[in-house]
Design a protein around this nucleic acid. Structure first.
Lengths: 211, 211
DNA sequence: TATTCTCTCGGTCTCTAGTCTGAGTTAAAA
DNA sequence: TTTTAACTCAGACTAGAGACCGAGAGAATA
């Protein structure tokens, strides 16, 4: 088997160094680069064209999800392993939809991560047991999340609501009439199956739709 | 100078291994143990009595803040360096109040962390620039965070708001009249300096007051 | 071309939210 | 004992939220 070219994208220096140091003992894996932000990661990956990418989700500049999407669009053969600090309901599926190949937690051991890298290079994906459980329950209830039915404009309005704006303020911000805002708000409330804007704001925050 | 005995408490295997591997090249530092949870960390520290502890804040079992408090109560000479994944308004001060000696981010380089360990053993504390900035602004405006001024009842009401309840629903849940609820809501809005319940709900979520 | 979707806006109506003022109760602190 | 703070509730009022109905313009699709 050829050497696996790997890029690590994580804003934590210690994590990058930790993985890199550990993987140096693995002869079949060659760490060809590291990046500390999503944007930097995309650039690096497009330049190095690695076989596998270890990608953190929570980073200060540019989310890992956006980076994952950009990379898979341009390099469909590049396997991206999401490596995140915690188990987050709302980010598993967006990440997988963005084209992530495997999904692991940082609580995994270094050995497990090395194994996941090799498997990814081999075309096998690894999903953390906890995450896999979520996927099963999602398959059992395959309905889309309510907010996926929102139109672009409605999502904009929802985010305004999530920021605590009144209808009048949304009207000014989006350059539309208050009546129109009310129409959108009403549609959003129905689609999200909530009773009022406060619940909509909570929904937006809990589902990670903000910003 | 004697060798510095260090314990690492972090639920991320890669972080522990990363720091440990890096610090092995430092002759003056001896990693005498690792723990993957707060409770486990307390036990280990009480047993090993290290000079310095590197402590993660976000862990699945037992928060780093509780662990920090327990350790400093029993071993006041043990220097605890908080090492956290992100810059969180709400956890800096509780951690420092719990007796943390230094406060660093995982975005710090491995060199910086090694330096912080040595400084801690020497009695010098290191506070991340960003965190230090927060401290300065706290000193400049020593007022408590708005929500700390809330009474117990008002906090209960705020959490209900954060859960999307209407005044009528809060009234039922807390067994008080709607008029009373309105009074509490009004007080909450003033104290938090927000205009309406939606903004209050957002506040509650952003400041981590929910649950 | 006909249809569908999205975004836009209007009118009317009801109800909730929130403000303000005032006030009684209890419990703890000075 | 007096004072203070927290919790309770009332009435009256204004303004915003949201429901419901209808409708026109533009773009995309069948």
């Amino acid at each position: 088997m050829n050497t696996i070219k790997l890029v690590i994208v994580d804003d934590h220096d210690v994590v990058r160094k930790g993985i890199k140091t550990y993987l140096m003992t693995e002869e079949s894996i060659d760490v060809v680069g590291e990046a500390s932000s999503g944007n930097q990661g995309v650039e690096l990956v497009l330049k190095e064209k690695p076989d596998v990418v270890l990608m953190d989700l929570m980073m200060e500049n540019g989310t890992g999800i956006e980076a994952t999407e950009k990379i898979t669009n341009q390099l469909p053969d590049c396997k991206i392993i999401i490596l995140t600090s915690f188990y987050d309901d709302e980010k598993v599926f967006p990440a997988l939809e963005a084209g992530a190949f495997s999904y692991m937690l940082k609580t995994s051991s270094a050995d497990e991560i090395a194994a996941a890298v090799k498997k990814a290079a081999n075309g096998e994906n690894v999903i953390e047991p906890k995450v896999a459980g979520k996927m099963m329950s999602r398959i059992r209830t395959p309905e889309r999340l309510p907010h996926e039915e929102l139109t672009e404009r409605e999502l904009e309005v929802l985010i305004c609501i999530g920021n605590g704006l009144t209808n009048a303020e949304i009207s000014e911000k989006l350059f539309i009439g208050i009546k129109t805002v009310k129409t959108h708000v009403s549609n959003v409330l129905h689609k999200l199956e909530v009773q009022d804007r406060t619940q909509a704001a909570v929904y937006a925050h809990q589902k990670g739709l903000m910003k």
